[in-house]
């Protein structure tokens, strides 16, 4: 087990290094994407969709960086088995490839989180709620890892999944209340009950931005979805992994 973690960690570190190789701005690039998305959406929606939402800039930015973690990790996981031909040379726990990918995105998520904390301080909204985010992040991590296991293994069999997921994840982005609120919209509200990201983002906003206790069913939903996806992901990956080396 300790080998599983050290291998995942080292793989993640190597990938992280490679991503920044020869780049002058390095990690600043990670912040540029969420920052620009944030500023643009703020500019467009603050007076419209964001009108009835208290502390809209914080509401928006937290939604963006949390979804960003999910989207980046899952989109890269679709290709993760394909990119690692070492599977054909050695017999090692292939789950580490998926885990290292999620860990790598956690590294960059940490930088986005720093950006968010900075904005929290600017708005005078910084409080201890941010510590609870670590617990939420644990569940989000489990969920994203489970989901990535599914995508990574299925994409070896269905190559089209790569294109499909790029498209679908964009739809989910639009369907998740990131730059708008879902309250009062019956149909979208019901749809979001099936969207795990809705739970994670809602719980985080309640605690960090509004300093209130989230509703119990949302917290439970968050936990159930994370374990459900973890178990399903491990099951599917386990079933399919024996053929990876033959198919890539």
């Amino acid at each position: 087990m300790s080998n599983f973690w050290s291998l995942s960690y080292q793989l993640a570190k190597a990938e992280f290094k490679l991503r920044n190789e020869g780049s002058y701005l390095g990690i600043l690039w990670y912040l540029l994407n969420p920052l620009l998305t944030f500023l643009l959406l703020l500019l467009i929606f603050e007076d419209r969709l964001g009108k009835g939402i208290p502390k809209y800039p914080l509401y928006l930015l937290l939604g963006i960086i949390m979804f960003n973690f999910f989207q980046q990790a899952t989109q890269e996981s679709v290709r993760v088995i394909w990119r690692n031909s070492v599977i054909k040379s050695l017999n090692f726990p292939k789950e580490t490839l998926v885990m290292s990918n999620v860990l790598k995105i956690i590294f960059s998520h940490a930088f986005e989180l720093l950006l968010f904390i900075f904005v929290l301080i600017i708005y005078g909204n910084f409080n201890s709620g941010i510590l609870i985010y670590l617990i939420i992040l644990f569940f989000l991590f489990i969920f994203v890892y489970g989901f990535s296991l599914m995508l990574a293994s299925l994409s070896v069999y269905f190559v089209d999944l790569n294109n499909i997921w790029t498209f679908v994840s964009r739809l989910v982005w639009l369907g998740t209340p990131i730059f708008y609120a879902v309250e009062g919209q019956t149909r979208l509200g019901i749809l979001n009950l099936f969207n795990p990201m809705y739970y994670f983002i809602t719980v985080s906003r309640d605690i960090i931005i509004y300093s209130r206790i989230p509703e119990m069913w949302v917290v439970l939903g968050m936990m159930i979805y994370s374990f459900l996806f973890l178990i399903a992901g491990m099951f599917i990956f386990n079933k399919l992994k024996y053929k990876f080396a033959e198919l890539i």
Binding site: S6, L7, Q10, L11, A14, K17, L18, S85, S89, L90
Partner: peptide, 21 residues
């Protein structure tokens, strides 16, 4: 072929070492 061309030899030794157990 499993060595990572963009990493240094030192990094590769650690990475491949872990991969071989």
């Amino acid at each position: 072929l499993a060595l990572n061309p963009r990493l240094t030899m030192k990094d590769n030794i650690f990475l491949t070492g872990l991969l071989v157990g």
